[in-house]
Design a protein around this nucleic acid. Structure first.
Lengths: 319, 319
DNA sequence: GCATTACATCGATAATTATCGATATAATCT
DNA sequence: AGATTATATCGATAATTATCGATGTAATGC
């Protein structure tokens, strides 16, 4: 007896994702495989099944009738496999599926959140969960939640969107910084007045535009950034003042490249939440991940030592 | 993306063969793999599923309860996979040819087996298959299988002939009956002793001659029948006691023509199997029919409340 | 106690699968 | 016609799986 498995589940799953994504481009991203690998897999499946599953190429991606039938049959088969797991009790402790996470830029490295630790612990028992991670602004992330494009998002939110449940994780101090070459850099704190602030070029975070202006009573912004790294650059240029999370700014302060401006006046805290859409029923993948996030946020300091790397392994990091 | 196939069909198939063969030795031959390979595969499957599937070693091979559950679930999954193939391949592999079926006498009308339903469903998509059906004794049927005169046979087998694969369908209760005019007919159950049984004329089924005698500890048979209808006649004559499947005897009991004798002492279950010759390669006609049989047997069980969903092969039952 | 039986474990090897980047191909767009 | 887009193919490499024989272990039989 040679072949004991006369079916290749991997190829079928690739096909389902291809069909769901409507083509190679999005499926590459979803599966994190190269276009050539997808092409090879699809061709292999067609040979095994003995028929063309889809038309594809410059003219677009379309399922053939055979492809439609196979897609439906494959979905059913995956349901049957779930049934198999249920019958032997696997589903009690096995998490499978896709978890789509959105994280506010500038938050990934936050030691108090310990995102990497939480994810590591989650994957230890959820090895079959596909984690899809993007960075974005609070508005983008909340919208993605509402649209069902994201399952769980993490960041500093205003906590005001209906239909979204916010679970507090951590409060993060924010501070106003200027760079080394800025005229306020060497000035003693008590000699920095409101006029100096208003006269300085102010770089706001695009998603916190009016909040930032209002908080320091500034007349207008001179720069607007979306990514936290851009904010760091502008401040380091010595021409702008702007807000940074303390966990980012402190490194630069330590190196003598930045200073905090009047923390007692301009400092504040922003609350970080993990947010999910309010849905009825069980969401084991999401709930388990949220549970890990909350646990790690509570452990916070103990986890800090091991942090440093981003979540780049998934190649999602460049939001 | 980690594993796209979160289930290893190969390992499951190895396990099913191991369970069917009742140990490593015969499975080695059936699978043409070394003992060490089998051992490694079984251990790997146990790790993946997180539980012990069987006890094995010098003391013998026995499935654990978890192993029993997994075996049943795996069989069903393989059926589902066959179903997948059927759904995408129905237009491609038209079933034509001849299917030669052999059925143990007395089994055709068994509602739990649902042979007519299975055949009806089979013919719905295999309309071009010529069905050749004979009745026979277990020995006859098994021999016909080995000789290649029958493709598939159904009945209560002892499951011991090499070269034949037995797939459990259903367990059927058997009971000892006497007819209306028999001197034990009106006697209260507690007043029927072993001496009464031994003194009664005993009609055995020719193919279960010594089994029947031994079961009631009877000295000798007074009649031997091959066809179940003959057994019914002898019992109805009021002169004989003998075994009948419950599904047949119950009708007569209902009409007041028979009674069951001490079911707690003399009742037992016989396991029904569908048996095919072990052959390499595809046998679409046979496999499709077996699939239907199994599906219908599953439905029948649900309908018959109280019958345990026991598909365990441990019933090497002497039926 | 020794021999036998039914597996488990290990190290080594071979086979198969999975994947990528470079390049090619076909269709569409400007 | 050239540029762009959406794949297909190929060669090369890496990773994983499958398998075996030798040896070890545990249980049973004599």
């Amino acid at each position: 007896m040679r072949r004991l498995d006369n079916i290749d589940l991997r190829l079928l799953r690739v096909f389902v994702v291809l069909a769901d994504e409507g083509g190679f481009h999005d499926a590459q991203i979803a599966l994190n495989l190269s276009q050539s690998t997808l092409s090879t897999h699809l061709a292999a499946l067609e040979r095994k099944l003995g028929g063309q599953l889809c038309e594809r190429g410059r003219s677009g991606f379309r399922l053939t009738p055979f492809g439609e039938a196979t897609l439906a049959a494959a979905r059913r088969l995956f349901d049957d496999i779930e049934g198999f797991h249920a019958r032997i009790g696997q589903d009690r402790h096995r998490l499978v599926g896709r978890l789509r996470i959105g994280i506010l830029d500038g938050v990934v490295t936050n030691p108090h959140l310990g995102l990497q630790t939480a994810l590591s612990r989650y994957m230890a028992y959820a090895a079959d969960v596909f984690v899809d991670l993007v960075l974005g602004t609070p508005q983008e992330l909340e919208q993605a939640l509402l649209d069902g494009e994201r399952d769980v998002v993490i960041g500093a939110f205003s906590q005001k969107v209906p239909g979204i449940a916010y679970i507090p994780l951590h409060r993060e101090p924010q501070a106003l910084y200027c760079g080394r070459g800025h005229k306020l850099f060497e000035r003693p704190a008590r000699e920095i007045g409101q006029a100096d602030i208003e006269a300085a070029l102010f770089s706001v975070r695009g998603y916190r535009h009016f909040d930032d202006l209002y908080r320091v009573n500034h007349p207008r912004a001179s720069a607007s950034i979306v990514q936290m790294e851009a904010q760091v650059m502008l401040i380091l240029s010595g021409h702008f003042i702007g807000y940074l999370p303390r966990h980012i700014g402190e490194d630069w302060v330590r190196r003598g490249q930045m200073r905090v401006i009047r923390p007692e006046s301009y400092g504040f805290e922003s609350a970080h939440f993990v947010a999910t859409r309010r849905l009825k029923g069980e969401r084991p993948l999401i709930d388990a991940f949220v549970r890990e996030l909350r646990a790690v946020a509570g452990v916070g300091e103990a986890a800090a030592a091991g942090l440093g790397a981003s979540l780049a392994p998934s190649g999602r990091g460049v939001g």
